[in-house]
């Protein structure tokens, strides 16, 4: 019973430390809210993370940042990458979505993968500045693999939107 309680406490401590590590490309969003931490296993001595995109240049930096942060907190855990199941934007937490919005990045529509057919318009994205749904996609590709470029037709503000994956 005691052991079980300790186990839970330690587990929670690891998650608290992880919540302090941010994606370097989105320095306000924690790896936990981004949904890339798949598992914390104290018995296995391992934290498993999953990359957002195969070619995400931030993936290795994130792994190192997590390992360093855990070491600073005196936790000796390995960081391993796990490919399957593949990360999806559905794993971004509610808090993560709010954080993105607060920083001017439109979060991906909840629980949906962008499966719009070839010639149809992509799903509407609300402008993070004025909330208008009257927006258009300028480019499906942006400054990082995970974002697209949009423009608001109501307030004219250009903005980034997290791509559905």
């Amino acid at each position: 019973m005691v052991a079980a309680t300790l186990h839970r406490l330690d587990d929670a401590r690891v998650w608290r430390v992880l919540a302090e590590v941010c994606d370097p490309e989105l320095p306000f969003l924690s790896v936990v809210d981004l949904g890339i931490v798949r598992e914390v296993s104290l018995t296995g001595g391992v934290v498993r993370i999953t990359p957002t995109y195969s070619g995400c240049p931030a993936a290795e930096v994130i792994g190192l940042a997590i390992a360093n942060k855990l070491a600073e907190a005196g936790m000796n855990l390995r960081v391993e990458t796990q490919l399957s199941p593949a990360w999806t934007t559905d794993w971004i937490t509610e808090k993560g979505r709010e954080t993105l919005l607060a920083h001017g990045i439109a979060p991906p529509p909840a629980a949906s993968t962008d499966k719009h057919t070839l010639f149809a318009d992509p799903p509407a994205v609300a402008c993070p500045c004025c909330g208008s749904m009257d927006t258009e996609r300028v480019s499906a590709f942006g400054a990082t693999a995970c974002k697209a470029m949009h423009r608001c037709l109501s307030c004219s503000e250009p903005f980034e939107a997290f791509k559905c994956l």
């Binding site: 195969s54 070619g55 942006g142 400054a143 693999a145």
Partner: peptide, 17 residues
């Protein structure tokens, strides 16, 4: 510019794979 970013991103996906 948009295509410069797009082609770089497409290349990056492939490089990751």
């Amino acid at each position: 510019l948009e295509e410069d970013l797009a082609l770089g991103n497409l290349g990056l996906d492939l490089l990751g794979q």
